[in-house]
């Protein structure tokens, strides 16, 4: 009596395993096709349109000092091994200069000292990584709008590109690496909480978190918050930047340029 039952169970189990393997393999084939991901991407387009429609001016939630993470996780590069950068570390970034150029009427260079003399903003915000984790930190820095006011972007400027001192693998099979880059639009650039931060939790920005300067663009995922910023470039289009998608991860791994989702 038990044998037919057992073999039937075996057949059922094999059928179930076969069915799921077939389903998941099918999904993989769709995922690797050229047309299906474009259909999937309509979800992202829809989200982005809804966000735009409702408005992008709202402020990110701010927290109290009690919420600050005991350890603020550093992700991506946590200690750029570039010789030039390391000599800046030894000099405590006294020689660091932030360049603002591109489509601006007044290209400028600002030392760390000069940046710190400008109006500052402090905010306790939550950093949300695309991977899923969150950490809360207190950031102090210059609102990007202040820096842009000095440089005076021309009417053709539509994006702000951040060029960084840390490098990532170029992605093609060579051993070469390329500097990190990211970009945001003017809406985000002039948002009150978008700052170039030089302090974390009341102390100079640690190397792991992007010393001496990193972007805080609250309301977007972590990879938009460029670290080790050397140059801020204003451009009309993202076409000439990297491979045209506006950022290192966007170009290499297919991350979305708009990271408010």
């Amino acid at each position: 009596m038990r044998d037919p039952d057992l073999s039937r169970r075996k057949v059922m189990r094999a059928a179930l395993a076969g069915l799921s393997a077939w389903l998941f393999a099918g999904c993989d084939r769709l995922n690797n096709s050229s047309w299906f991901p474009r259909i999937l991407e309509s979800g992202e387009t829809l989200s982005k349109s809804v966000h735009k429609l409702i408005g992008r001016r709202a402020m990110a939630q701010e927290f109290s000092d009690a919420d600050i993470s005991p350890r603020f996780r550093g992700n991506g590069n946590t200690n750029p091994d570039d010789a030039n950068y390391q000599s800046h570390v030894r000099e405590r970034f006294t020689q660091w200069v932030l360049v603002i150029d591109g489509l601006v009427e007044n290209p400028i260079k600002l030392t760390l000292e000069e940046l710190k003399a400008m109006p500052a903003r402090t905010q306790v915000t939550r950093h949300d990584c695309v991977e899923g984790w969150s950490a809360i930190g207190k950031w102090t820095g210059v609102p990007l709008s202040q820096v842009l006011m000095r440089a005076r972007p021309t009417s053709g400027a539509r994006y702000v590109v951040f060029h960084c001192a840390d490098a990532f693998p170029s992605g093609d099979d060579s051993d070469e690496s390329i500097p990190y880059y990211e970009s945001i639009d003017m809406d985000d650039a002039y948002h009150a909480q978008t700052i170039i931060a030089y302090e974390l939790n009341g102390e100079s920005l640690p190397v792991a978190n992007g010393a001496p300067l990193r972007l805080r663009v609250e309301r977007q995922l972590g990879y938009k918050h460029a670290k080790y910023i050397m140059r801020v470039e204003l451009v009309h289009t993202l076409e000439g930047i990297g491979e045209g998608k506006g950022g290192y991860w966007e170009d290499r791994a297919g991350y979305q340029w708009y990271a408010g989702i």
């Binding site: 991901p37 999937l40 991407e41 791994a253 989702i261």
Partner: peptide
């Protein structure tokens, strides 16, 4: 592939 996973998810 986090990027692809997210595309599937949000669609």
């Amino acid at each position: 592939s986090l990027a692809d996973g997210r595309l599937w998810h949000f669609f």
